[in-house]
């Protein structure tokens, strides 16, 4: 796959037929057991969570699932989580902390769901809660962006020790469409918006928002095998850290995003 402009990347990140989280999970882990529900209100089908083995290492897996065909997409609410999804994710992360299991998150969403019920049930609060709790979670977290990383809805599963991005994944404060219409009142300026927002995986690496860009070449199976190996290495290293040090480093990771990050080639 190749993409020339940032907008091409946006199209690739959203492309029909692109692997969704379920396909990564089935290849990277074994014995995945899905765990449902937020214990307050409902089970959000846009977020799939559970426990699995990464080699011989038990891990907690939390993913945003867009679904492949139309029926699945509707069932998964097109990967747009409601507050229950974030609450479920947080429940599973706390469980992971309790049992000293690392957490892998797969991020793929256009954003948190914009709906009446989502607001009534505290979408903003649910996201805020995840950000605050993830920063101090006493177990390692790696978040892998496999498609779209839409704003706060994506960040709520990405307050991690490391963020990895698939080569054609994107991460943005707002969709290029939203940016074009709000800022320039012109939905046709979406290409310019995609360019200006700096939303590609390569931009994330430059801005130190992502630690790693994963090439999308070779077979998908081979890519997943490599990812499994890299996840194990990342977790093994971080599990060796004292928990306070782990949390300190994660706080510092986000603490640095201020005016001091000045990439030269923008």
């Amino acid at each position: 796959m190749s993409a020339n402009t940032p907008y091409d990347k946006v199209m690739l990140a959203r492309a029909k037929g692109r692997a969704t989280a379920a396909e990564y999970i089935s290849r990277i882990f074994t014995d995945f057991i899905e765990l449902h529900g937020d214990r307050h209100f409902a089970d959000d089908t846009a977020i799939v969570g559970g426990v699995a083995y990464l080699g011989d290492m038990p891990v907690t897996v939390i993913s945003m699932e867009k679904g492949r065909d139309t029926k699945a997409k509707i069932y998964r609410n097109f990967g747009a989580p409601n507050p229950e999804g974030y609450n479920k994710a947080l429940r599973l992360m706390r469980q992971a902390e309790k049992f000293s299991r690392p957490v892998v998150c797969f991020v793929d969403t256009a954003g948190a769901f914009c709906g009446l019920g989502a607001e009534e049930r505290g979408q903003g609060r649910a996201i805020a809660q995840n950000l605050a709790e993830m920063i101090t979670l006493k177990t390692p977290i790696v978040s892998v962006f496999i498609g779209e990383g839409g704003s706060g809805g994506a960040l709520a599963l990405a307050c991690a020790d490391e963020v990895w991005m698939m080569e054609n994944a994107i991460y943005s404060v707002i969709s290029p469409e939203g940016c074009a219409s709000i800022l320039w009142k012109d939905s046709k300026k979406v290409r310019a918006a995609a360019q200006s927002l700096r939303l590609t995986a390569q931009d994330m690496k430059k801005l130190q928002v992502a630690e790693k860009v994963i090439p999308e070449k070779g077979t998908f199976d081979a890519c997943c095998r490599t990812m499994a190996k890299d996840l194990r290495a990342a977790f093994t290293a971080r599990m060796a850290l004292p928990k306070d040090e782990l949390v300190r480093q994660r706080y510092e990771r986000f603490r640095k995003y201020g005016a001091q990050i000045v990439p030269e080639d923008f």
């Binding site: 950000l131 991460y171 943005s172 700096r198 931009d203 986000f254 603490r255």
Partner: peptide, 11 residues
């Protein structure tokens, strides 16, 4: 400020 604004939420 693009993605760096989003990071302020986490920070």
């Amino acid at each position: 400020e693009g993605i760096l604004s989003l990071m302020q939420m986490a920070k």
